[in-house]
């Protein structure tokens, strides 16, 4: 019963999301696209985090995907839609090759190396003047779908749906058990017969593919990119803050965080042109210090407390708790 309730809620939410362009103007749709992009990145970051590996290189794979897509269209004459799949494939392959080296690293070494990789990608794109356009970047002759706001929105929504679907699969399949075991105690996971490297590689390649895909969607929607916009540190920072605020190790947490922070940042951007990102830094600090499980962790605790006091009438809350607990 509870599970069916959750499915119905998800279907209703999806229907509303799909219908958005019918009753929203161009600017709200643009905001929605940026929120969805960050949401997909936040969810994908969290998917790798579930194995205990913290990546600071989201922007690296995002930028790699956007360059792969724009260059495939510009230099290879590829169809824009196809180039998105191509970019996802490139990001996945690069992650596969790199994974053999960097997935042997743990903790701070892994994190710093992903950060360094992002810088390397950026410097390469900066310096290959003839191929990638150098510091000025590259411009497409025309945006995908002729720049139609609704079509762009649905494209981005499609990317987000793929990401959420992957994350949902991660949560419900055997993968979740393996990744959680690795996160909790690597030695005991290994002694229980889990092929740690294989699972980490799967998680790393899948999340990188998703990040590359979102980069490609973003670049096709705006029609241009430069090394500094493609590898903008914000693509690392914002998803991180969103996932932390919402609650890590779940799909719903990063999604909620992205909606909250995405809309808040759009508002703050107008109020404070310089330095509105301070909010993100402060949120990261507060979450780490006071609520390491994020908003959903707090909600779960509150619900459990309420449930302990004895309130059988709150069936609708129960389904939320079920969702959060996964």
């Amino acid at each position: 019963m509870k599970i069916r309730g959750a499915y119905i809620a998800a279907a209703v939410a999806a229907a509303i999301m799909i219908a958005f362009p019918a009753f929203l103007g161009a600017y709200p749709l643009n905001v929605a696209r940026s929120v969805m992009t960050y949401m997909a990145l936040a969810v994908s970051w969290d998917m790798l985090l579930r194995s205990g590996q913290i990546s600071f290189g989201i922007a690296g794979l995002f930028g790699l995907g956007s360059y792969a897509s724009i260059l495939a269209v510009l230099r290879g004459g590829m169809d824009p839609l196809l180039s998105i799949a191509f970019a996802a494939l490139v990001a996945g392959l690069v992650a596969f090759a790199l994974g053999f080296a960097i997935l042997r690293l743990r903790a701070m070494y892994f994190s710093i190396t992903t950060l360094a990789l992002m810088e390397i990608f950026r410097i390469i794109m900066h310096n290959l003047h003839d191929f990638s356009g150098g510091p000025e970047g590259v411009v497409l002759p025309e945006v995908i779908f002729g720049g139609d706001a609704s079509a762009l929105y649905w494209l981005c929504l499609g990317g987000l749906a793929v990401t959420i679907g992957a994350s949902w699969y991660f949560e419900r399949s055997k993968l979740r058990l393996a990744l959680t075991a690795i996160r909790n105690d690597e030695t005991s996971a290994r002694s229980n017969g889990i092929d740690i490297f294989k699972y980490l590689l799967v998680a790393f390649v899948v999340t990188s593919t998703l990040q590359g895909m979102m980069g490609a969607i973003q670049v096709q929607s705006y029609g241009f990119t430069t090394p500094d916009t493609a590898f903008d540190a914000n693509f690392t920072l914002l998803p991180l803050a969103m996932a932390l605020l919402g609650g890590i190790h779940s799909t719903i947490g990063p999604m909620a965080g992205a909606v909250l922070l995405g809309i808040a940042s759009e508002w703050l951007k107008l109020k404070i042109p310089y330095g509105h990102l301070v909010v993100y830094g402060v949120i990261i600090i507060i979450v780490i210090l006071f609520m390491p499980n994020g908003l959903f962790g707090l909600a779960r605790k509150a619900i459990r407390k309420a449930g302990g006091a004895g309130s059988p009438g709150s069936a609708s809350n129960g389904s939320d708790a079920e969702e959060g607990a996964r």
């Binding site: 994190s111 991180l240 310089y274 301070v278 949120i283």
Partner: peptide
């Protein structure tokens, strides 16, 4: 806390300081 929390915390501290300077 786990090492990852410290890493994220100092990352957040750095961002806050840069952005306050920006402000």
């Amino acid at each position: 806390a786990p090492e990852l929390n410290q890493l994220i915390l100092t990352f957040g501290l750095g961002i806050s300081m840069t952005q306050i300077a920006n402000l």
